[in-house]
């Protein structure tokens, strides 16, 4: 009979940081903190993008400003890169842990009490990672865009979203980003230990509202292009 009898385990780690990260809560905290960074970036990115509604000049000069400030641009990119890597590595390790924790699956399992967003983190996450790669190639490197011009951001956007296929792909990705943010925003508070019966319902509502607004903001751009509101 293989009843496991592990002794009680504490310690065995050379220092505070490794002991912290070894614990699942440590990994979750890393995901929460990097999640905050990435969320901040998403907000900033949205603010930048929405300048598309101000017209070509405004957006292109904003892009030019970023390019002229390499410390800001590369500094941000570096922080983002580290955050994304940590976010992904921790999530992969946690996923492995999850698989190991339940080797035999249920024949029938009813998960009705958790939200759709929370149960789809596992595949909304990887999809968003894939989307980021695509998005970078698409708008930063110009892959697959014949008339791509690194300096003419406005033109690139309008040209790309005039293809309904591309536009709908972006819209779909933003919807997933929305669900990911919805659970992520609320979850961040819980993971970092901030749960109070008076505030948690508010946090949940703010998370939902924030996710909806951000998603709507991003989606507005391809929709506006498709509708012809934004054009060259």
């Amino acid at each position: 009979m293989s009843i496991q009898m592990s002794a009680t385990v504490v310690g065995g780690h050379p220092n505070r940081a490794s002991r912290f990260y070894a614990a699942p809560i440590g990994k979750k905290a890393v995901m929460a903190v990097t999640g905050v960074v990435l969320f901040g970036f998403v907000l900033g990115h949205l603010a930048g993008n929405l300048q598309v509604f101000e017209g070509q000049h405004q957006l292109d000069s904003y892009a030019a400003f970023l390019k002229a400030t390499p410390v800001l641009l590369w500094g941000t990119r570096l922080v983002l890169l580290v955050s994304v890597i940590l976010h992904i590595v921790a999530s992969i390790q946690l996923t492995q842990m999850k698989r190991a924790a339940r080797p035999v699956a249920y024949a029938k399992k009813n998960n009705s009490h958790s939200s759709f967003a929370s149960r789809t983190m596992m595949w909304s996450g990887p999809f968003i990672a894939f989307f980021i790669a695509f998005h970078l190639m698409h708008f930063t490197l110009g892959t697959g865009q014949p008339n791509f011009n690194g300096a003419a951001v406005f033109g690139n956007i309008v040209q790309a979203f005039q293809s309904p296929l591309v536009a709908f792909f972006y819209i779909f990705a933003m919807l997933l980003l929305g669900t990911h943010l919805h659970h992520g925003l609320y979850s961040m508070f819980q993971t970092l230990g901030a749960n109070h019966p008076s505030f948690m319902p508010v946090i949940k509502r703010v998370a939902a509202l924030g996710a909806i607004l951000i998603t709507a903001g991003f989606i507005a751009i391809p929709v506006a292009v498709l509708a012809g509101v934004i054009h060259t």
Partner: peptide, 9 residues
């Protein structure tokens, strides 16, 4: 060997 919490309730 327990898993981690993903705050889903």
């Amino acid at each position: 060997g327990f898993g981690h919490c993903t705050n889903i309730g």
